[in-house]
């Protein structure tokens, strides 16, 4: 048994956790901004998929990875705007619109990918991002190679967490976001445009989901497959609840999920061969459901979540 554990907790294990956590952190922060403004975005799964496809395609055709990232972010923001148009401007059901955005974006991603690349026996791939060691920091034992010898997008995710906390808690715009998510009527009286603020938050959220998609196809897998997102968007929604709508806690939740996911990957690879690998694949999802059962009783969602705002209705 100890040999198994040694194999699991190698030096690379920590690095794997960070890599798995990165797209989840982007997606979770994106969903958190949207929900703090009062808009549940179930479009996340599809937005991540379409962004992943757009980023991969742009990088493949232009040869520039950063152009790919830009394309993914723009597509994510655009789909966020679409979701906001339906849920904020028109005040439609956030649940059903989100599913609609996911179905639409996924369909579009499949359609455009097949249109551009056709049905090739060997799926096209790109030369993805390479790890960039940070001088000095990457020399720290254990932590150095795991955290500071990573893709640039990983560093971006690590920076995004304090930045998101700063924006949400320390800037006037962040205050507006929290106000329109808690008490839109009061925000409106205070001269904050509820509609505009919600639009901005959902678009920012979409852009972050786009970054999550970009990471999947340009750093993690270096190719686009139809199952590239495979439920990570849904997991991010659960992580927001688990992280109590707070940037730090949400990022912590992403890290915890990544730990479970990295663990199951190691367990798959190690000697536990008589257990089907699908049992391990299930593990993070069951863990998430269990964590939600544990956390939800005391979780306090933004008060105006799911509630559309119409000025004339009192």
């Amino acid at each position: 048994m100890s040999a198994v554990f040694e194999q699991i907790f190698q030096v690379g294990f920590l690095a794997a956790i960070i890599r798995i956590a990165t797209p989840l952190a982007f997606a979770t922060l994106g969903e958190m901004f949207s929900e703090r403004a009062g808009v549940l975005n179930l479009g996340i799964e599809g937005i991540m998929l379409l962004s992943a496809m757009a980023g991969f395609t742009a990088a493949n055709l232009s040869g520039s990875l950063w152009l790919g990232v830009l394309a993914a972010v723009l597509v994510g923001a655009l789909m966020g705007a679409l979701h906001a148009l339906f849920t904020v401007a028109l005040g439609l059901s956030q649940h059903v619109c989100g599913i609609g955005v996911t179905l639409f974006s996924s369909g579009l991603a499949y359609f455009l990918y097949r249109l551009i690349f056709g049905q090739q026996s060997v799926p096209p791939s790109i030369d993805g991002f390479k790890p960039v060691p940070i001088p000095l920091l990457s020399d720290i034992p254990i932590l150095g190679p795991a955290v500071f010898n990573q893709f640039t997008l990983v560093y971006l995710a690590i920076l995004a967490i304090p930045l998101a906390a700063f924006v949400l808690y320390r800037t006037p715009w962040g205050l507006s976001v929290r106000m329109v998510g808690e008490n839109p009527r009061a925000a409106d009286s205070a001269g904050v445009s509820v509609i505009a603020t919600r639009f901005q938050a959902v678009i920012l959220g979409g852009a972050l989901m786009g970054l999550a998609g970009a990471f999947l196809t340009m750093a993690q897998f270096n190719a686009f497959t139809f199952g590239v997102v495979s439920g990570r968007g849904w997991v991010a929604i659960a992580l927001v609840v688990f992280g109590r709508w707070d940037p730090w806690r949400s990022a912590g939740a992403a890290l915890l999920f990544a730990f479970v996911d990295a663990l199951q990957l190691r367990m798959q690879a190690s000697g536990l061969g008589h257990i089907p690998y699908e049992a391990f694949l299930m593990l993070p999802f069951i863990f998430t459901i269990a964590a939600m059962a544990f956390m939800s009783r005391n979780a306090v969602a933004p008060s105006a979540l799911l509630k559309p705002f119409r000025r004339e209705e009192r």
Binding site: L42, V241, A279, F285, T288
Partner: peptide
């Protein structure tokens, strides 16, 4: 437990799918 039904029912889809895969690959 006041767990949001949207998220849990969505996550459960993945669990069931992997259970099915475990059966037909096992």
């Amino acid at each position: 437990f006041k767990v949001d039904d949207v998220v849990s029912s969505l996550l459960l889809n993945s669990v069931i799918y992997y259970a099915l895969m475990a059966l037909i690959e096992g």
